Simulated assay, not measured.
Amino acid sequence: MKVIIGVLSALLLVVSGCSGEERSPLKTSIYNADNDKIGTATLTEQPDGVQVKLKVEGLEPGMHAVHVHEFPKCETPDFKSAGNHFNPLSKEHGLMNPKGAHVGDMPNVEADQSGMIDTELMLPEAKMKEGQKSLLRDKGTSIVIHSGQDDGMTQPAGDAGERVACGAITLKADEDEASDPTEPDKKQEGN
């Protein structure tokens, strides 16, 4: 009897894992204030959180804050439609804050002299699947890049400056067909 229950439980897990929409990895496009696609963020659920591979160009060289925000809205030019930081646990802002951090807080990233960011980050408390800390709960969230760096403490957003780029994190994020400027042009490669 225990064997039958174990087999049925395993089958249920397999079927439930295959029946839902694919949540990981998920690639979302990043747009600037002029609504030009400037790169992508690829989010992959890992045992220790969500890995974020960020590849973006066209930024000012130097340090930039990156956060996940609470709404999947990236209305130009200021991206305020993305709301506040994703903070389902009601903590204070900042990776250095003893009362923090928000689930959506990430380390600063550096754009090189050409304005390119190509890095991997981690959201240790986030999930892609269902649950309170899911980046896809409700209708989703967004990833926002700021003009300056996050100081890791100042409330509510680390004194990180203006929002300069944004990408909606939704189940339909993969459907964006705009060309990615950070990838070689496939048509030109064939010539």
Rank of each mutant, 00 (worst) to 15 (best):
K2R: 13
I4E: 10
G17Q: 10
G20T: 09
L26F: 00
S29F: 06
I30D: 07
Y31Q: 07
Y31C: 10
A33F: 14
D36Q: 13
K37M: 08
T42E: 11
T42D: 05
G49H: 01
L54C: 04
E57S: 09
G62F: 01
M63F: 09
H67N: 13
V68P: 09
F71Q: 07
C74L: 03
T76W: 12
F79Q: 07
K80D: 15
G83K: 11
G83V: 00
H85I: 11
F86Y: 11
P88N: 08
E92K: 14
H93R: 03
M96R: 12
K99M: 07
H102K: 13
G104I: 00
M106H: 02
S114Y: 08
G115Q: 02
M116A: 12
M116Q: 12
E120H: 13
L121F: 04
A126H: 11
A126R: 14
K127I: 15
G131R: 05
G131M: 09
S134W: 00
K139A: 08
I143K: 08
Q149C: 07
D151Y: 05
G152L: 07
D159I: 08
A160R: 14
E162S: 03
E162V: 04
A165D: 09
G167D: 15
A168N: 12
I169F: 06
L171H: 04
K172Q: 14
A178L: 12
A178E: 11
S179I: 06
S179V: 13
D180C: 01
P181F: 02
P181Y: 05
E183V: 10
K186Y: 15
N191L: 10
